[in-house]
Amino acid sequence: MSKSNDTMGKTLGVVIGLCLVCSLVVSGAAVSLKPLQKLNKERDTQRYVLEAAGLLDQANGDVPATFERYIDARVVEYDTGDFLPQIDPRSYDLAMVARDPASSAKPVNDVASIGRRAHYGVVYLVNNEAGELDTVILPVHGYGLWSTMYAFLALAPDMNTIKSLVYYDQGETPGLGAEVVNPRWKAQWAGKKLFDETGELAISVVKGGAPAGDIHGVDGLSGATLTSNGVNNSLEYWLGEEGFAAFIDKIRQGELNNG
């Protein structure tokens, strides 16, 4: 009986030892890989920003250098539209900040189902070869059918003319809602206008297709009404008072040099 207990004790000891060793290996790998994961995430963001700006082909594989040359990332306060130069956009983790009640709040009108909105966001100012503002890129996100969909909305300096809408993270149904990444659908956004003559938000993904010549309409995604609604809701929220409305007004008034 004692021999049996000794054997069981040794077996348990070996199992526990192996578990501890495996835990240490996994933890060590996670810690050592974290900087690489952070770098890869940063590179992905840069690549999609360049795509939204129409500069990805120009990068010729050197995304970081092209991003550094043309893109000025800035942290902005949503409520005031002011730049916050004291915050480094490279180290500002928007997702983490939005989860912290001390640095975020629940939206008053959460039409995009984002849950919480951070007090500050990151915008991307794209300069041309002469150093003049050419494009402003706003991050937008909202819930579709199955997932929160993340995109970059690129606007001309008039803050009304759309240059592109690039979805870079979504989990919608392949062949249906996931068509938000289809180049043919994405191409429809170029040249559309956000606001009508009265200043009201008028851009819309239209179920059944936008009328010919409609400067505010983009064809809906066939068989994906909820995803299309999610796109509309995302734009409604982030271009509204709780989103980038104050920042858009600042740019229109020529107040870019406030930080």
Rank of each mutant, 00 (worst) to 15 (best):
G81W: 01
D82H: 07
D82K: 12
F83D: 01
F83W: 06
L84W: 05
L84M: 07
P85Y: 00
P85H: 02
P85A: 03
Q86C: 06
R90F: 14
S91D: 12
S91N: 11
S91T: 15
D93P: 13
D93G: 11
L94I: 13
A95Q: 07
M96V: 14
M96D: 14
A98E: 10
R99N: 15
D100R: 07
P101F: 03
A102I: 03
S103P: 04
S103M: 10
A105M: 01
K106P: 00
P107T: 11
P107N: 07
P107K: 02
V108P: 00
V108W: 01
V111C: 08
S113L: 10
S113E: 12
R116S: 11
A118E: 08
A118I: 07
H119C: 00
V123M: 15
V123K: 15
Y124K: 09
L125N: 05
V126W: 01
N128Y: 08
N128C: 13
E129W: 02
E129C: 04
E129V: 05
A130W: 05
A130P: 02
G131P: 09
E132N: 13
E132D: 12
L133I: 09
L133D: 05
D134H: 05
T135Y: 02
V136M: 04
V136S: 01
V136I: 08
